[in-house]
């Protein structure tokens, strides 16, 4: 464990807490893509299959439970909670996210480190996470002004994998036994690049203290 990895996990944790805070306190999920939340729940379900079979550290297990619990409770809020679900704008959240799942699954079957069920599912989760933010980014383009909490949520979610990239670079040079993980590295890089223009507009809006507005 290095500081970059810890910073990445804490940033990721902050993103789900910001989202839960938004939904739980103001009882609204306006501007949040349910499709992205569904994809993330699938990512965690596929990635953490080994949560009870392969104990790595207490930290890892606790964090996996937090990410699984938070992503499924966000789904519950957005689909079942009588007040929150009314603020979900399904007419705007139209990205056909099913078209992301199958290609990622096929790619995981073709390109993986080991052709076992758990490894293919883990690889599937890596590919899917790289594109899971797309419905949310499309929704942000549509909803003209983005509220602060939603902007912070997307920013933190994008930043966490960026910190993981620094963690991989650090481990590559610092840990002689650290082997190459091209699948994780390339997917993580693509994932972070998807946020590039969002980061640009978000940082500008924070710097100039103006509402975040993505160009149409």
């Amino acid at each position: 464990m290095n500081i970059f990895r810890l910073a990445g996990d804490m940033t990721h944790l902050m993103s789900v807490l910001v989202l839960l805070l938004k939904i739980h306190t103001i009882k609204s999920c306006a501007g949040i893509s349910l499709k992205t939340q569904e994809l993330y729940a699938l990512v965690f379900a596929a990635r953490y299959l080994d949560i009870f079979t392969h104990y790595y550290s207490l930290y890892n297990t606790v964090m996996k439970l937090i990410f699984l619990g938070s992503s499924f409770s966000i789904l519950w809020y957005m689909k079942r909670h009588k007040v929150v679900r009314r603020s979900y704008d399904k007419d705007q959240d139209t990205f056909r996210h099913h078209f992301l799942v199958l290609p990622c699954l096929v790619l995981a079957l073709l390109i993986n480190e080991k052709f076992t069920f758990k490894e293919v599912m883990w690889t599937f989760s890596i590919y899917l996470e790289a594109v899971a933010i797309l419905p949310q980014l499309v929704l942000l383009q549509r909803t003209r002004n983005v509220d602060n909490l939603t902007g912070q949520y997307v920013f933190l979610l994008g930043a966490y994998r960026g910190l993981y990239i620094i963690n991989w670079i650090y481990r590559y040079f610092a840990e002689p036994t650290y082997s190459t993980h091209w699948i994780t590295w390339i997917s993580g890089l693509l994932q972070t690049l998807l946020y590039a223009d969002f980061f640009y507009y978000y940082i500008n809006s924070v710097k100039n203290n103006v509402r975040l507005q993505l160009p149409a």
Partner: peptide
């Protein structure tokens, strides 16, 4: 069996 590729990250 060959050691499962242990994914030690989240």
């Amino acid at each position: 069996a060959e050691e499962e590729a242990d994914h030690d990250e989240l």
